[in-house]
Design a protein around this nucleic acid. Structure first.
Lengths: 229, 229
DNA sequence: GTCAACTACATTGTCAACAATATTGTAGAC
DNA sequence: GTCTACAATATTGTTGACAATGTAGTTGAC
């Protein structure tokens, strides 16, 4: 039963292109010409092709018949929508995490929280952001709700570009730390309702910060070039 | 600017295969051999291939390298997970619907509800189920939350096979009618919190009915043939 | 100069052949 | 009889060529 180990070209194409989009090497609105990508990654056009189909289904790429694919551009309004959907699903996951967390897992969460506090006191916003992601990721693992996890991961990927804006809002990091503390406390106490509520509150605050950030940085220069169907 | 009107083969392949899965012409666990599907639908293998890739990303198909694709089998536990995720998202959508519904839209909802009542009194469970779907669909349109709508549609498709089980649970149709009435009333009153709560309650009840139904109809014959990674 | 029709080009969509892998069947050793 | 090694087959993965479509540029009429 020689089960295949090495990845097929299509798979690597999917991960490479996806990674390039998430790393912002490929920017929103940018055309994704199959031949170019194939040469860039040293893969066949067919592999790139199916990778683009998958990425379109995932919401990272937009494609029109005979006109090619582009990195999907997500405006502020949609970013808020995505955050709201994430909030609903992560709230569910937090409820599960509160139900199922073992003492060891709780200790791990508290450890992350402590490191977050340290980064905050050091004024290291980027480090905080990383621990933020780690905390959310860990909560998903504890929850063990694979359906929710899959959807959340997809939503997170779509919003990666907007994620960093929020940490710059004045006073946001302090409140963020406090919100995460409430989540962890609720999970540690196995208080499902409180955990769900705390997570909902947290991500609603992030959405609010995003709205503020967008209002500040973007005085709405209406770009009629990129259309959204 | 002759913009393409007729669908490309890949698109039709996607819709045809998807439809066949949803109509249960292709059953869970069944192998999806590219050549067979191509002949069945009169399409090229390439079109089928990318369609399968999209369907895998959507969660309707499971595929392993060099071993082919199958219709993904969803067991009872996962069906409950999917319903929980749907509940979280539709609750969000109901909140939006309550915020944005116009008087005309409210009248339309109430009309559907009345027809549901009529079907209930006539003992027409299938007719009720259709109106059920229509009501949920209409709420999504009123909400205008495209991100949530996309995810919900995907989840609904995955659960289509389990959907019909619940309506057979004794007394379920009566309670379902009542739950829907509460939702519509909250939306009509523009009470966002109440609408969200009512929708959450409703789908939680559906999940509960599903658990009961599964416990009754399936005395757990452990089938070690189909594995879930 | 502006517009329409036409041509040339770039890119995507489709097809058929070939390579790589898994699965099944067969023969032989013990 | 059972197991292993090997051959045969079926299916998927990949490649290259060709067709279909959209886009840009060019020419000509007015």
């Amino acid at each position: 039963m020689p089960v295949s180990e090495k990845a097929t070209e299509t798979q690597t194409a999917y991960y490479r292109v996806r990674q390039a989009i998430l790393a912002e090497e490929l920017l929103p609105g940018q055309r994704l010409v199959e031949k170019e990508l194939a040469e860039r990654f040293g893969l066949g056009r067919a592999a790139i092709r199916t990778a683009l189909a998958r990425l379109e289904q995932e919401g990272l790429v937009k494609s029109e018949p005979f006109r090619g694919a582009t990195v999907r551009a997500i405006d502020e309004a949609e970013a808020v929508e995505i955050l709201e959907a994430r909030a609903a699903l992560e709230s569910l996951a937090a409820r599960y995490a509160a139900r199922k967390a073992t003492p060891e897992q709780v200790r791990h969460l508290e450890d992350i929280l402590q490191r977050m506090q340290a980064r905050y006191e050091a004024g290291d916003l980027l480090g905080m952001s990383e621990l933020n992601s780690e905390l959310h990721q860990r909560l998903l693992e504890i929850a063990g709700h694979r359906t929710a996890a899959r959807l959340i991961e997809s939503l997170r990927a779509q919003n990666v570009r907007h994620q960093f804006r929020t940490i710059l809002v004045p006073g946001r990091s302090r409140r963020s730390l406090e919100e995460h503390r409430r989540i962890v406390q609720a999970v540690a106490a196995h208080d499902e309702e409180k955990a769900a509520q705390a997570m909902l509150e947290h991500l609603s605050q992030v959405a609010e910060a995003l709205r503020q950030s967008a209002a500040l940085t973007t005085p709405q220069p209406p770009s009629p070039i990129l259309e959204e169907a």
